[in-house]
Simulated assay, not measured.
Amino acid sequence: MKTAILIPARYASTRYPGKPLVPVRQPDGATKSLIEMSWEAARAVPGIDDVFVVTDDPRIEDAAHRFGADVIMTARECENGTARCADAVARAGLDADLVVNLQGDAPLTPPWFVEALIDEMIRDPEARMATPIIHCDRETYGNFVEDRRRGMVGGTTAVCDRFGNALYFSKEVLPWLDPQKVAEMDVIPVFHHVGVYAYRRETLLDYAGWGECELERHEGLEQLRFLANGEKVRCVEVEARGRVFWELNNPHDTARIEQALEAMAQ
Protein backbone atom coordinates (compact mmCIF):
# COMPACT_ATOMS: atom_id res chain seq x y z
CA MET A 1 0.00 0.00 0.00
CA LYS A 2 1.66 3.20 -1.18
CA THR A 3 1.53 5.79 1.58
CA ALA A 4 2.27 9.52 1.55
CA ILE A 5 2.41 11.89 4.52
CA LEU A 6 1.17 15.42 3.88
CA ILE A 7 1.86 18.23 6.37
CA PRO A 8 -0.70 21.02 5.88
CA ALA A 9 0.49 24.43 7.05
CA ARG A 10 -1.00 27.90 6.74
CA TYR A 11 0.45 31.18 7.86
CA ALA A 12 -2.81 33.04 8.42
CA SER A 13 -3.98 31.13 11.49
CA THR A 14 -6.77 33.00 13.30
CA ARG A 15 -5.61 32.02 16.78
CA TYR A 16 -1.87 32.10 16.15
CA PRO A 17 -0.73 33.87 12.95
CA GLY A 18 2.57 32.59 11.60
CA LYS A 19 2.43 29.48 13.77
CA PRO A 20 4.27 27.11 11.36
CA LEU A 21 7.37 29.33 11.49
CA VAL A 22 7.41 29.82 15.26
CA PRO A 23 10.91 28.97 16.60
CA VAL A 24 11.02 26.21 19.19
CA ARG A 25 14.11 25.90 21.39
CA GLN A 26 15.77 22.50 21.20
CA PRO A 27 17.56 20.79 24.11
CA ASP A 28 20.94 21.85 22.65
CA GLY A 29 19.91 25.51 22.69
CA ALA A 30 19.37 25.79 18.94
CA THR A 31 15.95 26.55 17.49
CA LYS A 32 13.86 24.92 14.79
CA SER A 33 10.60 26.06 13.29
CA LEU A 34 7.43 24.17 14.11
CA ILE A 35 7.06 23.08 10.49
CA GLU A 36 10.61 21.69 10.36
CA MET A 37 10.01 19.68 13.53
CA SER A 38 6.76 18.31 12.07
CA TRP A 39 8.59 17.35 8.86
CA GLU A 40 11.22 15.52 10.91
CA ALA A 41 8.45 13.70 12.80
CA ALA A 42 6.94 12.59 9.47
CA ARG A 43 10.28 11.37 8.15
CA ALA A 44 10.78 9.29 11.31
CA VAL A 45 7.82 7.06 10.36
CA PRO A 46 9.14 3.87 8.70
CA GLY A 47 7.78 2.61 5.39
CA ILE A 48 6.50 5.95 4.05
CA ASP A 49 6.91 6.55 0.32
CA ASP A 50 6.62 10.36 0.21
CA VAL A 51 6.51 13.33 2.60
CA PHE A 52 5.25 16.75 1.46
CA VAL A 53 4.64 20.09 3.13
CA VAL A 54 1.40 21.46 1.66
CA THR A 55 0.77 25.19 1.93
CA ASP A 56 -0.53 28.26 0.14
CA ASP A 57 2.04 30.64 1.63
CA PRO A 58 5.40 31.39 -0.05
CA ARG A 59 7.03 32.11 3.33
CA ILE A 60 6.32 28.56 4.47
CA GLU A 61 7.31 27.23 1.04
CA ASP A 62 10.69 29.00 1.26
CA ALA A 63 11.33 27.80 4.81
CA ALA A 64 10.45 24.21 3.86
CA HIS A 65 12.75 24.25 0.86
CA ARG A 66 15.60 25.53 3.05
CA PHE A 67 15.45 22.48 5.31
CA GLY A 68 15.03 20.11 2.36
CA ALA A 69 11.30 19.37 2.21
CA ASP A 70 9.27 18.76 -0.93
CA VAL A 71 6.35 21.19 -1.18
CA ILE A 72 2.97 21.15 -2.90
CA MET A 73 1.34 24.57 -3.23
CA THR A 74 -2.42 24.63 -2.71
CA ALA A 75 -5.31 27.03 -3.08
CA ARG A 76 -5.52 29.82 -0.50
CA GLU A 77 -9.22 29.06 0.01
CA CYS A 78 -8.65 25.66 1.69
CA GLU A 79 -10.58 25.97 4.94
CA ASN A 80 -8.66 23.39 6.97
CA GLY A 81 -5.87 20.81 6.86
CA THR A 82 -7.98 17.99 5.43
CA ALA A 83 -9.27 20.20 2.62
CA ARG A 84 -5.69 21.32 1.96
CA CYS A 85 -4.54 17.70 1.74
CA ALA A 86 -7.38 16.91 -0.68
CA ASP A 87 -6.43 19.90 -2.82
CA ALA A 88 -2.77 18.83 -2.82
CA VAL A 89 -3.65 15.28 -3.88
CA ALA A 90 -5.79 16.56 -6.74
CA ARG A 91 -3.32 19.23 -7.91
CA ALA A 92 -0.24 17.01 -7.79
CA GLY A 93 -2.02 13.89 -9.04
CA LEU A 94 -0.68 11.86 -6.13
CA ASP A 95 -1.36 8.17 -6.58
CA ALA A 96 -0.89 7.09 -2.96
CA ASP A 97 -3.40 4.49 -1.76
CA LEU A 98 -3.23 5.95 1.73
CA VAL A 99 -2.75 9.62 2.62
CA VAL A 100 -1.69 10.60 6.14
CA ASN A 101 -2.40 14.13 7.36
CA LEU A 102 0.23 14.98 9.98
CA GLN A 103 -0.72 18.48 11.01
CA GLY A 104 2.06 21.00 11.26
CA ASP A 105 1.36 21.93 14.89
CA ALA A 106 2.03 18.46 16.35
CA PRO A 107 5.81 17.97 16.21
CA LEU A 108 5.82 15.62 19.22
CA THR A 109 3.81 12.98 17.34
CA PRO A 110 5.65 9.67 17.81
CA PRO A 111 6.11 7.50 14.72
CA TRP A 112 4.16 4.62 16.25
CA PHE A 113 1.01 6.76 16.32
CA VAL A 114 1.10 6.92 12.51
CA GLU A 115 2.13 3.27 12.20
CA ALA A 116 -0.92 2.27 14.25
CA LEU A 117 -3.22 4.05 11.79
CA ILE A 118 -1.62 2.42 8.79
CA ASP A 119 -1.80 -1.01 10.44
CA GLU A 120 -5.51 -0.50 11.18
CA MET A 121 -6.26 0.51 7.59
CA ILE A 122 -4.46 -2.58 6.33
CA ARG A 123 -6.19 -4.83 8.87
CA ASP A 124 -9.67 -3.58 8.01
CA PRO A 125 -10.25 -2.86 4.32
CA GLU A 126 -13.67 -1.42 5.22
CA ALA A 127 -12.14 1.39 7.30
CA ARG A 128 -12.09 4.50 5.15
CA MET A 129 -10.21 6.71 7.59
CA ALA A 130 -8.60 6.46 11.02
CA THR A 131 -7.23 8.78 13.70
CA PRO A 132 -5.36 8.15 16.99
CA ILE A 133 -6.66 8.73 20.49
CA ILE A 134 -4.79 8.45 23.77
CA HIS A 135 -5.97 8.18 27.35
CA CYS A 136 -5.38 11.45 29.19
CA ASP A 137 -2.94 11.26 32.05
CA ARG A 138 -3.52 13.58 34.99
CA GLU A 139 -1.18 16.27 33.69
CA THR A 140 -2.83 16.42 30.27
CA TYR A 141 -6.32 16.34 31.74
CA GLY A 142 -5.33 19.14 34.11
CA ASN A 143 -3.98 21.20 31.21
CA PHE A 144 -7.26 20.70 29.30
CA VAL A 145 -9.37 21.79 32.25
CA GLU A 146 -7.11 24.77 33.02
CA ASP A 147 -7.18 25.97 29.40
CA ARG A 148 -10.97 25.85 29.37
CA ARG A 149 -11.13 27.63 32.76
CA ARG A 150 -9.04 30.44 31.24
CA GLY A 151 -11.33 30.59 28.21
CA MET A 152 -8.66 29.18 25.89
CA VAL A 153 -8.95 26.37 23.37
CA GLY A 154 -6.55 23.59 24.24
CA GLY A 155 -6.52 20.05 22.92
CA THR A 156 -9.44 18.09 21.46
CA THR A 157 -11.23 15.20 23.14
CA ALA A 158 -12.95 12.23 21.49
CA VAL A 159 -15.90 10.09 22.57
CA CYS A 160 -16.20 6.68 20.91
CA ASP A 161 -18.65 3.78 20.68
CA ARG A 162 -17.72 0.25 21.77
CA PHE A 163 -16.63 -0.61 18.23
CA GLY A 164 -13.94 2.07 18.21
CA ASN A 165 -15.78 4.51 15.96
CA ALA A 166 -16.11 8.16 16.94
CA LEU A 167 -19.37 9.46 18.35
CA TYR A 168 -18.11 13.04 18.65
CA PHE A 169 -15.04 15.25 18.86
CA SER A 170 -14.96 18.49 20.85
CA LYS A 171 -12.74 21.25 22.13
CA GLU A 172 -14.66 20.94 25.36
CA VAL A 173 -13.43 18.32 27.82
CA LEU A 174 -15.76 15.36 27.20
CA PRO A 175 -17.15 13.47 28.97
CA TRP A 176 -17.72 15.83 31.91
CA LEU A 177 -16.27 14.47 35.14
CA ASP A 178 -17.13 15.37 38.70
CA PRO A 179 -13.99 17.19 39.95
CA GLN A 180 -14.37 15.61 43.39
CA LYS A 181 -14.22 12.11 41.90
CA VAL A 182 -11.31 12.64 39.50
CA ALA A 183 -8.71 12.34 42.28
CA GLU A 184 -10.03 8.88 43.13
CA MET A 185 -9.92 7.54 39.57
CA ASP A 186 -7.18 5.09 38.61
CA VAL A 187 -7.77 5.84 34.92
CA ILE A 188 -9.26 9.11 33.73
CA PRO A 189 -11.95 8.23 31.14
CA VAL A 190 -11.13 11.09 28.79
CA PHE A 191 -9.44 10.53 25.44
CA HIS A 192 -7.14 13.13 23.91
CA HIS A 193 -7.63 13.20 20.15
CA VAL A 194 -4.33 13.35 18.30
CA GLY A 195 -4.64 15.49 15.18
CA VAL A 196 -3.34 12.91 12.71
CA TYR A 197 -5.51 11.26 10.07
CA ALA A 198 -5.08 8.41 7.61
CA TYR A 199 -7.50 8.40 4.69
CA ARG A 200 -7.99 6.24 1.67
CA ARG A 201 -7.42 8.47 -1.32
CA GLU A 202 -11.04 8.40 -2.51
CA THR A 203 -12.36 9.23 0.98
CA LEU A 204 -10.17 12.31 1.14
CA LEU A 205 -11.41 13.50 -2.25
CA ASP A 206 -15.04 12.88 -1.17
CA TYR A 207 -14.47 15.21 1.79
CA ALA A 208 -13.59 18.11 -0.47
CA GLY A 209 -16.94 17.83 -2.25
CA TRP A 210 -19.17 17.84 0.84
CA GLY A 211 -18.63 21.42 1.96
CA GLU A 212 -18.40 22.74 5.50
CA CYS A 213 -21.00 21.46 7.98
CA GLU A 214 -22.54 23.36 10.92
CA LEU A 215 -20.81 21.33 13.65
CA GLU A 216 -17.45 21.81 11.96
CA ARG A 217 -18.05 25.55 11.77
CA HIS A 218 -18.99 25.83 15.45
CA GLU A 219 -16.22 23.61 16.88
CA GLY A 220 -13.53 24.41 14.33
CA LEU A 221 -12.86 20.68 13.95
CA GLU A 222 -12.52 19.42 10.41
CA GLN A 223 -13.16 15.76 11.26
CA LEU A 224 -16.77 16.53 12.21
CA ARG A 225 -17.54 16.88 8.49
CA PHE A 226 -17.04 13.13 8.13
CA LEU A 227 -19.47 12.36 10.97
CA ALA A 228 -22.04 14.86 9.66
CA ASN A 229 -22.01 13.07 6.31
CA GLY A 230 -22.44 9.60 7.81
CA GLU A 231 -18.80 8.56 7.38
CA LYS A 232 -17.35 6.49 10.20
CA VAL A 233 -14.14 7.73 11.80
CA ARG A 234 -12.14 4.85 13.26
CA CYS A 235 -10.41 5.81 16.49
CA VAL A 236 -7.23 3.86 17.20
CA GLU A 237 -6.05 3.91 20.79
CA VAL A 238 -2.30 4.43 21.06
CA GLU A 239 0.12 4.54 23.96
CA ALA A 240 2.52 7.33 24.84
CA ARG A 241 5.27 4.92 25.98
CA GLY A 242 6.56 7.57 28.33
CA ARG A 243 6.50 10.35 25.75
CA VAL A 244 4.68 13.61 26.39
CA PHE A 245 2.31 14.56 23.58
CA TRP A 246 1.03 18.12 23.13
CA GLU A 247 0.09 20.22 20.12
CA LEU A 248 0.97 23.88 19.73
CA ASN A 249 -2.48 25.46 19.89
CA ASN A 250 -1.68 28.69 21.73
CA PRO A 251 1.49 30.78 22.28
CA HIS A 252 1.98 29.40 25.80
CA ASP A 253 2.11 25.85 24.38
CA THR A 254 5.60 26.61 23.03
CA ALA A 255 6.97 26.36 26.57
CA ARG A 256 5.12 23.07 27.11
CA ILE A 257 6.68 21.60 23.97
CA GLU A 258 10.16 22.86 24.93
CA GLN A 259 9.79 21.25 28.36
CA ALA A 260 8.75 17.97 26.73
CA LEU A 261 11.80 18.08 24.45
CA GLU A 262 14.03 18.64 27.47
CA ALA A 263 12.49 15.65 29.24
CA MET A 264 12.93 13.43 26.17
CA ALA A 265 16.62 14.39 25.94
CA GLN A 266 17.39 13.30 29.52
Rank of each mutant, 00 (worst) to 15 (best):
P8T: 05
R225V: 08
R217C: 11
A42Q: 06
P111Y: 12
R200K: 02
L102H: 12
V71Y: 03
V190F: 04
I48S: 06
G242R: 11
G47N: 14
T109A: 09
A9R: 11
T55F: 07
V236S: 10
F163Q: 14
A96S: 15
D119E: 14
G47R: 11
T140Y: 09
A30Y: 04
G142K: 05
R225N: 14
M152K: 15
P111H: 14
A208P: 00
A240G: 12
A75M: 01
Q26M: 15
L221M: 12
G68A: 10
V236D: 10
G142Q: 04
P20H: 07
A228N: 01
Y207G: 10
R234H: 12
P179Q: 10
L6I: 07
G164C: 06
Y11K: 03
A183L: 02
V54K: 03
P111T: 06
P27M: 08
T157R: 12
F226N: 01
A265P: 12
M185F: 03
V100T: 09
V114E: 01
A86G: 11
T254G: 04
E184C: 00
A30V: 03
S38W: 07
D186E: 15
P107K: 00
R66E: 14
M121V: 02
M121L: 14
G155I: 01
A263N: 02
